[in-house]
C-alpha cells in the first residue's frame, strides 16, 4: 500500500486506536482517520472511500464483520483488515467471508502489521 493512501482505523477502544495509529504513523502513513464503531465506519467509508480500513470485531452499534459486509457492498475495492482479540477460526472465517483481506490477532505485532499492510494490495 502506498504511503499516501487513506486509512481508517475503527475500534471502540481508545488505546487500540492510539496504538494502531502510532504503528501506522511510524511506518510512514499519514492520512489516518479514526472512528469508534462499525456504523460510523460504514458511514465514513460511504463519504470518504478510504483505501484501507482496519476494523475490530467486537464493537458497539455495529460489529466489525457486519461493517465489513456493508463496506464491501458499497465499495468492493476497499481493502479491509480485521484486528481483534477474538481471533478464533470461526471469527477469521466470518471476516474473510465478509470480504476482509486479512486478520490480525491482538495484541498487534508491529512487524506482522507492517507485512500485512505492505502486502494488502497483492
Amino acid at each position: 500500500m502506498n504511503k499516501d493512501c487513506t486509512i481508517l482505523v475503527c475500534d471502540d477502544s481508545i488505546l487500540a486506536r492510539k496504538n494502531l495509529t502510532a504503528f501506522l504513523t511510524g511506518f510512514g502513513y499519514t492520512n489516518i482517520s479514526e472512528v469508534s464503531n462499525g456504523e460510523d465506519a460504514v458511514n465514513y467509508c460511504r463519504d470518504n472511500k478510504p483505501d484501507l480500513v482496519f476494523l475490530d470485531i467486537v464493537m458497539p452499534v455495529k460489529d466489525g464483520v457486519t461493517a465489513t459486509r456493508e463496506i464491501m457492498n458499497d465499495n468492493p475495492d476497499t481493502k479491509i483488515i480485521i484486528v481483534s482479540s477474538v481471533g478464533t477460526q470461526t471469527h477469521l472465517k466470518e471476516a474473510i467471508k465478509a470480504g476482509a483481506k486479512d486478520f490480525i490477532q491482538k495484541p498487534i505485532d508491529e512487524e506482522l502489521l507492517r507485512q500485512v499492510v505492505e502486502n494488502v494490495d497483492g
Binding site: 477502544s13 481508545i14 488505546l15 467486537v58 482479540s85 477474538v86 478464533t88 470461526t90 490477532q105 491482538k106
Partner: peptide
C-alpha cells in the same frame, strides 16, 4: 477505565482463542 476494559477484552479474547485452538 478504557485501559482496564482494553486489558479485559484482550485477556478474554485470548482466552476464547485458546479454547478454540
Amino acid at each position: 477505565r478504557e485501559a482496564i476494559l482494553d486489558f479485559l477484552n484482550l485477556h478474554n479474547g485470548l482466552f476464547v482463542v485458546l479454547l478454540s485452538k
